[in-house]
């Protein structure tokens, strides 16, 4: 195992998280509620007046830091996972809710927390869940994969089906990338845990096929959009879309974060988490030192926009203690 590649997985996820446009929206949670209300009202104004580009976001009489480039929800959930990785997972979630009653989370996590409060235990807490298929567990699985641990118990608290498979695939990919530095082997390890008769297994193979045909991460963007994206309803964080995109872009970029992450960020509907997952795999392939310094500098300090108790935490320092 390479410490540089473990740090690369964590930092790569945070860099990808920061690169996607939804990071700014998550980070605006740090502003006063009235600023987000004004945002909604301006949106309505734009609709009414048929004007296209709004003067948002803004930080009127507020700290300006949340508007700067920086990490958001995925980096925070990864940090929390690393910090609590030795706790029984359902207990860790219960403790988190007690500590952070105002936390913000994906629908799968919010529903799982409600289920736990109602006495519905894992795996039902992740299964009886309308967004059981999202990639909340896949993001957390980056910590398990980087440290060579099994993500399944954690994944089943909040997810089921493709959501759990997404976590298994991400842990397998990141684990193989940390061990070998090879994007090809990372993708191979992920495909080995994705049955072909599941949506995520089908999409992963399809995504790799169309990305290979395009031959280059940026060139693959329209093909991935056409083949994979749900144009009926944009589920930004469906594991069956985001994980396959991350695998395909990691492979076709040869594990180069600087080529793969920008392409993932171009898939606007998936830009909440696909760049982060792509960054985790490619960050592990190339290692921490290969990530542009300006990006790690911007992405390492957590904002606390979803998990307020982590505001100011340095993700890379935190990783040092794990390596």
């Amino acid at each position: 195992m390479s410490g540089d590649r473990i740090r690369g997985a964590f930092a790569g996820l945070a860099v990808g998280d920061a690169a996607g446009w939804p990071a700014g929206r998550h980070r605006s949670a740090l502003h006063a509620p009235w600023s987000r209300r004004l945002h909604r009202e301006l949106d309505a104004f734009a609709e009414e007046h048929r004007v296209t580009t709004l003067p948002v976001p803004f930080a009127l009489n507020q700290p300006v830091a949340p508007l700067a480039l920086g990490p958001s929800d995925d980096a925070e959930w990864l940090a929390w996972t690393a910090l609590t990785i030795d706790r029984p997972r359902a207990e860790a979630f219960r403790e988190l809710r007690e500590r952070n009653p105002d936390l913000r989370a994906r629908i799968s996590v919010a529903t799982a927390l409600d289920n736990l409060a109602r006495g519905v235990e894992p795996p039902a807490s992740g299964h009886d869940n309308p967004h059981h298929f999202d990639d909340a567990a896949a993001v957390r699985a980056v910590a398990f994969g980087a440290l060579g641990r099994d993500p399944a118990e954690d994944a089943r608290v909040t997810n089921a089906g493709d959501g759990v498979l997404g976590a298994l695939a991400m842990a397998a990919a990141v684990g193989a990338a940390v061990a070998t530095g090879s994007a090809g082997q990372a993708v191979e390890a992920a495909l080995a845990v994705l049955p072909e008769d599941t949506a995520i297994g089908h999409n992963a193979r399809l995504a790799i096929e169309v990305a290979r045909a395009a031959g280059d991460p940026f060139a693959a963007v329209p093909a991935l959009d056409a083949a994979l994206l749900d144009h009926v309803y944009s589920y930004a964080v469906g594991a069956a879309q985001t994980v396959p995109v991350a695998l395909a872009l990691a492979e076709v970029s040869g594990g180069a974060l600087g080529r793969a992450v920008p392409a993932a960020a171009c898939l606007a509907p998936l830009a909440d988490s696909a760049p982060a997952l792509t960054g985790a795999i490619t960050g592990a392939c190339g290692g921490f030192e290969a990530i542009p310094q300006g990006w790690t500098a911007s992405a390492r300090t957590l904002a606390g926009c979803c998990l307020p108790h982590l505001a100011g935490t340095d993700l890379i320092e935190l990783t040092e203690e794990l390596v």
Binding site: D197, A199, D230, V232, Y233, A240
Partner: peptide, 23 residues
């Protein structure tokens, strides 16, 4: 139903037509 129609248009067959959309 909308997701299914999209899946059928992409040439998929059941059960993938019911699996590949998220609803």
């Amino acid at each position: 139903e909308l997701g299914t129609v999209e899946a059928l248009r992409r040439g998929l067959e059941p059960p993938m037509t019911g699996l590949v959309h998220q609803h």
